[in-house]
Design a protein around this nucleic acid. Structure first.
Lengths: 263, 263
DNA sequence: CCTTGACCTTGACGCGACGTCAACGTCTGT
DNA sequence: ACAGACGTTGACGTCGCGTCAAGGTCAAGG
């Protein structure tokens, strides 16, 4: 047999046969006077063995070891290991398909939608399109979702849950609209203080606590979360950043009872 | 942020970040005076997006296309395609694990066991160890199993089924023993003709028909199956090959009624 | 001032199982 | 004699980074 016939017989490419020679899986047969390899049935038997194991998913060097060892014990071990490996892959694929299925039920599908289910339920509460600021918020929440560990994710979602009630959503939409309006405004625009007060008014207590803890009393005490807030401000328009600056000042000044004063 | 901070934040290696720069997935940020990359929150947002899609299993260049397109339509298409792909992988893995499970129930496990279930049931009928010739037969059957298409496999197994009855197995064991004895014998050993007659006596009719059809009346008419038989003879000891030569001659001489003559 | 160690830079190879040229020789049929 | 189908070796491409190599930069401590 020449190499093409052998390959056709077993159902592989000639490249594959030569590759197996290179790896030492299949011994080099004697050559004809023209340099062609001359195979016999024995080689087809070996090649078929290699293919069967390869089709089970064994790596080629594992196959070499198994065939070299020439006793069934190692084969069983390798197959068991392979099975465990395949089981793990199977599970990984299953999880990904599960997430994909969840994602595909979403009718408004964009790259920031691919977050944990917990965060997805929060994101659903944001206005669909139109608000630049809401879009920004979505990005931030998605970022937090991928950076945080599972525990933090749950805790964070818990903080945000009060904002998913129907009333909070309606207020949120209005607040986003007003933040959008400030995109081109000056930092000393009167609407800045108004808006900050409004936000302070309706922010859940736990969020205030967390935000205060994040930034500390002096800039030097800023935690990692505080650096985040600072970084975020850099992405905002000046007046929008000022809203948050004023907001933080308010929270620092009247940690618990600003609501009474605002009334 | 420097590259290490960004990487830690999103949970990837710095190598990954630079890789994404190279592929154009993440824009190169401005550099500090010392040449270090300086990232801002915006970059973290983009990187997190890339990671989320990558963890779903999208290829990196697909991610680039999806993010460049900047509209949800292509994303849905790509995700659907991905899901189909994952489903195919899942099925492939499932099949392999199924075959693995079957294999692992076998107590005598060697590389030629990894055949189709159909052929496996035939192989189980062969003597476990000891007979060199049975081992050779096992190799041949395994080879046929991997080279033949599913249809041929079934047909072939059907031909062999008569040989799996208890009586046939007992006879087969005896015949293997006698073939083994011929390993060192001369081609004109008297046992050769005896054994050929014995085999001809008990071979299923359909196998005789197939073997005759395979070789044709003249060597020039040999089909592919016939070449197989010729090749096989090359792997055998001279006296063993002679058994088959004589056997074929007997079949050719008395296609259907040799059994009567032998009685 | 010098060192140490932790960061940053670019560039390049390695992995796994082949596919796919390239550049060439050999055989077969007309 | 020539085309077309084979064979030969050698080398690069795939994919998503990991892992050196060979440096430059920076903050802290002796």
């Amino acid at each position: 047999m020449k190499i093409g016939e052998l390959a056709a017989l077993v159902g592989v490419s000639t490249r594959t046969v030569r590759h197996y020679h290179h790896l030492g899986l299949l011994p080099e047969p004697p050559r004809l006077s023209n340099g062609y390899r001359e195979y016999r049935l024995r080689d087809a038997v070996i090649l078929a063995r290699v293919r069967r194991l390869a089709e089970l998913g064994l790596a080629l060097d594992e196959i070499r070891d198994v065939l070299a060892d020439d006793q069934g014990k190692e084969l069983r071990e390798v197959l068991l290991e392979l099975d465990a490996d395949l089981a793990a892959q199977q599970e990984a694929i299953r999880l990904r398909r599960e997430r994909l299925a969840t994602l595909l039920t979403e009718d408004d599908l964009h790259p920031d939608s691919a977050v944990s289910p917990t965060m997805a339920s929060v994101l659903r509460g944001l206005p669909a399109g139109g608000s630049k600021f809401a879009e920004f918020d979505r990005e931030m929440l998605a970022l937090v979702d991928t950076t945080a560990g599972p525990g933090d994710r749950e805790a964070f979602a818990e903080l945000l849950r009060p904002l998913t009630t129907p009333e909070a959503l309606a207020r949120g939409e209005a607040i986003y609209a007003r933040l959008d309006e400030l995109a081109e405004a000056a930092p000393d625009d009167p609407r800045v203080t108004e808006l900050a007060a409004e936000i302070a008014d309706h922010l859940p207590e736990e969020m205030k606590t967390m935000m205060l803890a994040s930034v500390g009393d002096h800039p030097a005490e800023a935690t990692e979360n505080g650096r985040w807030l600072a970084e975020m401000s850099l992405s905002l328009a000046p007046a929008q950043a000022e809203v948050f600056h004023v907001l933080m000042t308010m929270l620092r000044a009247k940690p618990a009872d600003h609501a009474k004063e605002d009334e």
